[in-house]
Design a protein around this nucleic acid. Structure first.
Lengths: 109, 109
DNA sequence: GCTCCTTATCGCCATTTAACGATAGGACTG
DNA sequence: CAGTCCTATCGTTAAATGGCGATAAGGAGC
């Protein structure tokens, strides 16, 4: 397994507010991305670095390849994961900053 | 404003695991409850104790009373809030244990 | 260039969600 | 007990979601 595409977490702090209308929208958007068990499982896989490549994620889930690809798109669109082209494959990895942001927003409740 | 219906947070720890298939379902379910800005705003209102009574919540949101009532039902069904009858009104309040559980699940990612 | 492998996108269908007005029901007040 | 206030539920509609197979697109390697 090659994790070269997955960056180590950085520790820059996020200065955006954790409450207000914009924060509500942001939290709702991130929560929606995690509102499906398959997407939670994908995030967990990537957090554990068990898998990075799309094909392996498909193998771990009881879903069709096209369905998994859609879930990956949802997670990517909200910034929770990132995909980088790695030869013929695509290597997905967590975006630690977004996950930290989510924790901050939840913590602010 | 009367907050007598809203209990103070207790600190009992939750022994359920924070990963695995069941935890995935649980996290997805809680995330879905927060996947709408109006519901995030309701949780925030209750966290700030700005309002406890359904009618006041309706006043704070640009939505019809029936719509707000449905959002409250979603939050209640997943255990994030609780409603108690207070004379002719209904007093809603956060369920701190569920919120802590959500934080634990998010933290476990 | 052709072919294979990998992933994204398209089209379709069934189900769920969100919104509202209207209505029902429960609890005080007079 | 009649009226009033507050909240939940019903019925409807439009839009979003989740699933799949089929197909397109883009590199790798022969």
């Amino acid at each position: 397994m090659d994790n070269s595409c997955c960056p180590l977490p950085d520790s820059a702090s996020d200065l955006r507010p954790i409450e207000g209308a914009e924060a509500d929208e942001e939290l709702a958007s991130l929560a929606k991305a995690l509102s499906h068990p398959a997407r939670v499982q994908i995030v967990r896989l990537l957090a554990r670095r068990v898998s990075c490549v799309c094909g392996e994620i498909v193998d771990q889930l009881p879903l069709a390849q096209s369905t998994v690809s859609q879930h990956l798109k949802v997670l990517k669109d909200c910034g929770l994961i990132r995909g980088e082209i790695d030869g013929p494959r695509i290597c997905y990895c967590l975006e630690p900053r977004t996950l930290r942001r989510l924790r901050a927003l939840i913590g602010g409740l």
